[in-house]
């Protein structure tokens, strides 16, 4: 029962000759070429904002910032909550899960005079090496504190390796504030 015998299709003489198929193929490619040369490639203007010659968007003259989908995975960054508290408690799960080992965290204790001393722990150093990052989004998925997010920034450039490492300050700058998420560090818990 599990074996289904499939018969090879019988080819007609035209198919066996192969030449008609070649000619058909040539006409299809020619059609595409003509439409491209005339600037009428289907979907070019509507979906990709391109010139019409092909669907390639001419970066950097045109950019697709407006068309980025919500689920776009760009540069990973840290976020603060509405009260300005850094969400990250440096549990290092992102460091653990990160497939290319792009994240390096050194945790530290929050001083007792800090308003958020009850959280006890925060990152002292939080580096994401963007030359290593593969934008997989596992850090975002694994974070128990909803502190790391992949933002929509994609133009991450630098002239040296050191410049490509995002430190904690820069990560908060990219990340900004995120509100209305689960907050388990309130008084009652």
């Amino acid at each position: 029962m599990a074996i289904i015998k499939i018969k090879r299709p019988q080819l007609t003489i035209a198919e066996k000759l192969y030449l008609p198929a070649v000619i058909k193929g040539l006409s299809i490619t020619l059609g595409h070429a003509i439409r491209a040369v005339l600037g009428k490639t289907p979907g070019a203007k509507r979906n990709f904002n391109s010139s019409g010659m092909g669907i390639t968007m001419q970066y950097p003259e045109t950019k697709w910032d407006d068309q980025l989908p919500d689920y776009y995975r760009g540069v990973p960054a840290l976020v603060t909550d509405e009260k300005g508290r850094e969400r990250c408690v440096s549990c290092q799960l992102c460091e653990f899960i990160c497939p290319p080992k792009a994240i390096a965290i050194i945790p530290t204790e929050i001083e007792s005079d800090d308003p958020w001393a009850k959280v006890e722990k925060r990152p002292q150093v939080f580096d994401i090496d963007m030359t290593r990052c593969i934008y997989c989004g596992m850090c975002e998925e694994v974070c128990p504190e909803q502190a790391i997010y992949l933002r929509q920034d994609y133009a991450m450039t630098g002239l040296s390796r050191a410049e490509m490492v995002n430190d904690k300050e820069r990560l908060y700058e990219i990340g900004g504030v995120r509100e209305g998420l689960v907050n388990k560090w309130n008084e009652i818990k």
Binding site: S90, C91, L93, E120, K121, E145, K184
Partner: peptide
Amino acid sequence: HPLDCPICDQA
């Protein structure tokens, strides 16, 4: 038990 495994050293 508080759910502070992310900061707890025993985790």
